[in-house]
Amino acid sequence: MMGINAAVEVRNLDFTYEEGPQILHRVSFSLPQGSLTAVIGLSGCGKSTLCHCLCGLIPQALGGELSGEILLQGHDISGRPLAQLAQTIGLVMQNPDLQLVTTTVEDELAFAPENLCLSPAEIARRIERVLAWLNFEHLRLASPHDLSGGQKRLLAIGAVLTLEPQILVLDEPMSHLDQQGQKLVKDALLALLKEGCTIIMVEHDWQIATFADNWLVMIDGRVSYFGPPADILQDKDFLLQHNLL
């Protein structure tokens, strides 16, 4: 699988928080450009930790002891400032409350492109596109903190989509969303894939994750399967044994 066109390449990642046991053990994988990977695993197995590593939040901001290599578009990320990494990789956090930083929905969506010094016309284009994707026109001037749980989730996703990163990491984007919201997000992700974006998505519900190209199954901080979902779904015993179905 290792090739020049790998968008994300992770080699032998070990990680331990400042206190507590080792969380990630020898995690290695490589994601082809323009593919969608679903990270599947039980709660507490280290999925969010892995997402934070990919975006550089670990170890730069959250601390802990990390060893191993992460390459994004062929470049090692260690030591690169977070704000700079953000132009390559966007992260939708698991808890939307912690991600919303401005006072209106419009500003929230404009925040990332404004930081990238884009022209007002381009910023407006990105905002309109995302507003249309998420069906959010009527909430344009609402305060992010007065939204319902599902609306906050959608906004948190939208705010990262306006960044238009080449690699997108979503930590449980479907939680709190109703059927319609899940469909909106799924369609937006599929549209991004067509444009060549590489997507990593954490998901508990394997039924939702069946549209992914690859599954990365994590068990207790180790990668125990990486490949198309169809193959592993045939091995029901394995999944049942590890409580994944």
């Binding site: 901001a61 400032p81 704000a83 700079q84 953000a86 966007g90 912690l98 919303l100 930083v101």
Partner: peptide, 9 residues
């Protein structure tokens, strides 16, 4: 969250 969205890039 701000830095992860390119604040001060």
């Amino acid at each position: 969250a701000m830095e992860a969205r390119a604040f001060r890039a």
